[in-house]
Design a protein around this nucleic acid. Sequence first.
DNA 1: CCTATTGTACTAGTAGTCTAGTACAATGGC
DNA 2: GCCATTGTACTAGACTACTAGTACAATAGG
Lengths: 131, 131
Amino acid sequence: MAQLFRLDSSSGVPFYRQIIDQVLLAVADGRLKVGAQLPTVRQLAVDLSVNLNTVAKAYREMEIRGIVQTQQGTGTFIAARASGGRAREKRKAVSDLLDRFIANAEAHGVPIEDLVEALVERAENARRRTT
Amino acid sequence: MAQLFRLDSSSGVPFYRQIIDQVLLAVADGRLKVGAQLPTVRQLAVDLSVNLNTVAKAYREMEIRGIVQTQQGTGTFIAARASGGRAREKRKAVSDLLDRFIANAEAHGVPIEDLVEALVERAENARRRTT
DNA sequence: CCTATTGTACTAGTAGTCTAGTACAATGGC
DNA sequence: GCCATTGTACTAGACTACTAGTACAATAGG
């Protein structure tokens, strides 16, 4: 498999947060499926050349947020989505996210058409991967 | 002028870096032209509700990188050699924004297809509004 | 010259991130 | 039972980002 994690030390984003983001991305676009095992904290720490505690912190936060399930002695796995959320709540979540996203994009001077184009492309890649 | 700068305190990216990024993007897409004056350090600090030193740090780093020219007592201005690699920067900006957006959505259990649908709808509304 | 406005410089303190090292706890395979 | 492997927990220290407050330096304009 292609390298799943890569850190950008020049971005200013904390490592543990980058790890979380990349797990979420991988889940969103199908590279990581429910039940898949993540690298062990020690292995990933070596791969990324960061400290064991940094990886552990990322895993712990993902555990709390329900993104993964950890079993001491066994490993860390992508959790079955607690997507029991009702349709109404989901719609509101999407709306709120979009508000922030578009506002952010506008602050960066990115036209909305570019966003649509890029997002559609990502979605297609994800679909291709899951079928 | 529309709000040129906006900070995202939840992104984990340092404020001073966000300021630099947004100046670069504004230059890249023409909202800031060579010779344009940036807000004063004090004014921007008030606008963004951050400390004077944080803005000063951003300006100082941009000065060093040749993005702006500062004149004590006068102001801070976009330097002549500031513009370069606009298409590349824009593409990276879109990509970074998307990464965060999708990861964020996934964290909320929102599938990527829903995002496409909602975003397309917004884009159509926006187009209808501007024509 | 005087004053307001601009950027600059410095100290001090708080909070968060990351590293380093060590030890403990639970699981699975033998 | 034994032991390797997994995640967890803790302390200590270095470093960075940010805030807060103060003072200084250069410029523009009356």
